Structure formats: C-alpha cells, structure tokens
Computed example of a mutant assay.
Amino acid sequence: MSVRTRLSTVAAVALTTAVTAGAAALLAGCGPENPAGESAAPPAATAPSGAGTASGPSTRPGGTAAPTPTAPTATATTPAVNGTAGNHLTISNGTDHVLMNGTSVDFGTVVRDLAWSPDGAKAAFVDGAGNLMVANPDGSGRVLVARAPGGETWSHPTWQVSAVVPGVEVPLKNNIFFAAAKGGVSRLKGIAATAVDGTPQVLGLGTEEGPDIKPLPQTGNTWPSAAGPHGTAVYANSDTGEVYIRDDFLRQQGGPLLPGSQPALAPGGEDLVFVRAVGGHDHVFEGGVAERPAKDLTPGAATDFTEPAWSPDGRTLAVRAPDGIYTLPVDGSAAPVKISTYTGLPAYRP
C-alpha cells in the first residue's frame, strides 16, 4: 500500500488512540507561566542578546542576516513586543534565552533550533557545543541526549512519537530526528528521545514507493519534521530541491512530494507547509502528503518568509522574516501580520 493511500485510509481509525497514547509515552512537565496575564508587558530585565539563526545547513534560503534584536521595554505601548503572550508561540534565537508566554526564559545554555515534544512536556535543541539536548520547558532538567562528534554540525531536531495502535500494528516510537552535516554532506540521523549521551544512527530512507522502485537520496537531506500518530516525517533535499516524505507505518518507505524546502508537517500528519522561491522572494506554501496542488499562502510577499511552524490547533502559522516574526492563517484567508520584533526560529509549544 502506498504512503498516500495508506495515510488516507488509516488516519481516521488510528488518530485518536495514537495521539492519546503517544502523549502518555512522554514525561509530564510544566512550563513557565506569565503571572501578569496575557496582556502584560515582558519584563524589563536583560533581553536575549545577539541575532541567532537556526544552526546547520539550509536554514535561511533567503541568505539575509537577522538583525540584532532590540531589548523590550515594559511600557503600556509595548504589551507584547516579543509576540508570545497567550498563543503557545516560542522563539529561540541562538542565545541562552527562549521567548515564551510573553517573557524571556533563561535556559542556562545556548538554545538553537528548539522543538517541542508533541505533548509540550519537553524541549529538544542544539546547545552551544553543538550537542543534542532535552530539557523541561523552563530550561531545568537538561539531559545530554547525544554528543556531536568533531567536525559535524547538527541542526533542526524534531520529535517522532507514536503509540501502539491495536489492529493497525503501529509500533511504539519516541525518537528525535535531526540533520547532521559534515564535509559539506548532510544526512538525517535519529536517536531515542530518552537516550543519555547516546550514539545517533543514520536514518535509513529505503527506496521510493511506486512501480519504479529506486533508492531515495541518502545525502543532501535536511530540515526533518515529524508529526501525526504514525511516525510520519517530511524533510527537504538540497540536491534535488524537493520535499520528501518518510513513512514509518508498517515498513519504512517514502518519496518526493513537491519542490520546496524547510517543510513543516501539521500536527495531524496529513498536511504540510514549506518554502519555495517566487519572484525573488521566499514564499510559504501549503500542501498535503496526498497529492494535491500546493497553495501559495503569501502571494503578495515583498520580503522573505521562511521557517514556518504550525500552531497546535493547525489553524495558524508562524513564519520568520528579516525584521521579525509574522503569523497568518493556514487557509490563506489573510496576509501575514507582524507580531514580534525579535528574529529567531518560531515554534509552537502544544
């Protein structure tokens, strides 16, 4: 059964069970709250310094350097200068601080490419030494999951979580995928999310589905994004310029979906967004793992919109631009609206 056909027929049967059990497989945790409420201004304490970018290959297709963020001031005229109050949005920018809940949380170590577990209980990121770390939402309880070898750059971790679904035979998974670049060559690697100072393995990508069976590209793969109840992931290949699907339902299979980069899989695992150059700017498109035309969500873009992230309810996207973070509806019914003066990698905490 092909990836696209299988996803269409099984999703309705397995979704509720898999999401519930998958969340139970992760440790419970709680994050920092904003005691002043959603409309309160962020504190006037020291703001993140430096203009971090997502680490690793192919993180800024537009090639524009992010400006140094400006420290927020706690005044009535700037009630949400970092744009994260009351909306689950977080922003990591390569400093020790992560913006969330309308404030700045000190993780006690450099945080690059932060990604949340599907239940929001844990954060995975790459630290200042290039290692893969997991921590609680307030930065406490840091665990070294894997240590990056010399000369290898790790980037963009993503959580692959699924539960055993009776009658569907979906195996239990609780892994972290990421891109590993060395000597100009990028591969996808994976490791158990519960590992401590473990050794990641190169992900097997198998062969392309369909009648013309052929090996999938094993190098040039970047920007993995996993979601949904079956351990499905998408990723980009810098050599072919296409977005691929990696299906882990009963056996590993996959194939190219459409031209683009920086894909992000929707929480349900059926839809995705990605970046594609149009008229000299990077636009954000929406598509699906099942074949259907992709839709340009930013047709009037006069700047580069990159690094899209899904809100937990699947209705809103956060995207990065050279001058900050914007949000827009997934259905394309409105243009992007700037909500943050900070630049960094947007991610939503479920």
Rank of each mutant, 00 (worst) to 15 (best):
N136C: 11
G141S: 15
Q218K: 14
E209W: 01
A180K: 10
N221W: 09
L203Y: 01
G228N: 01
V161I: 11
G183E: 13
A180H: 09
L188Q: 00
L172T: 07
D197V: 14
K214V: 09
T232D: 02
G150P: 01
Y244S: 00
H156M: 15
G198E: 12
V145F: 04
G167A: 13
P166W: 10
P200K: 06
A146M: 01
A193K: 01
R187W: 13
V185F: 12
N175D: 15
D247F: 07
D239G: 11
V168M: 13
N221I: 14
Q201K: 08
F178H: 07
L188H: 00
D248C: 10
A148K: 03
G139D: 06
I176Q: 00
V165P: 02
F178R: 06
G183K: 13
G204D: 07
N174E: 08
T153Y: 08
K173P: 02
T219K: 14
P224W: 01
L144N: 04
D138Q: 12
R187Q: 15
G198Y: 12
H230R: 09
I245Y: 01
L172V: 15
H230V: 09
G241I: 15
V185H: 13
D248F: 04
S162I: 08
A236H: 12
G150S: 13
V168W: 03
E169G: 11
K173S: 07
P229M: 10
K182Y: 11
G183F: 08
G206Y: 09
Q160H: 04
V196Y: 01
I176M: 09
P224Q: 05
T158D: 01
V243W: 02
